[in-house]
């Protein structure tokens, strides 16, 4: 998905400094302070986690921290709501599989 560089009503999008973070060990870049979910969306990541029983993919749904569909493992802590958690340089983000990291990300 692409970022909106200039909006007809809101003007140019203001961002924090560009930082590197790690998604399942792959380096990616985003803007510090934006929600993790936004940085992932800009990088084309749609799947945030797999459900425990049926192993179904889940991603952003409500984007306001209410539905918990977008939770991931952030710096080793599971069930972090990525839509309301600000991105910090060097963050280690992992796809969550049930309540543990997805195998590829370990």
């Amino acid at each position: 998905m692409s970022r909106i560089s200039e909006h007809p009503i809101l003007g140019p999008t203001e961002t924090g400094p560009k930082v590197t973070f790690f998604m399942d060990n792959q380096p990616m870049s985003g803007y510090a302070g934006e929600p993790i979910a936004v940085a992932l969306k800009a990088a084309g990541v749609m799947i945030h986690r797999y459900t425990q029983k049926a192993h179904e993919p889940r991603g952003i749904f409500c984007a306001i921290g209410r539905c918990t569909d977008c939770v991931m493992i952030v710096d080793g802590i599971p069930n972090v709501r990525t839509c309301i958690t600000p991105l910090v340089a060097g963050m280690k983000i992992q796809t969550q599989d049930g309540v543990t990291p997805l195998e590829v990300s370990q």
């Binding site: 998905m1 203001e14 952003i60 984007a63």
Partner: peptide, 23 residues
């Protein structure tokens, strides 16, 4: 439940607060 099904409020949050296209 597939990623890509979102609430209208989520779309507003993404595009109007954080400057990213929801899709």
């Amino acid at each position: 439940t597939l990623p890509g099904v979102i609430g209208a409020g989520a779309a507003q949050t993404m595009m109007n607060l954080y400057g990213i296209q929801p899709g």
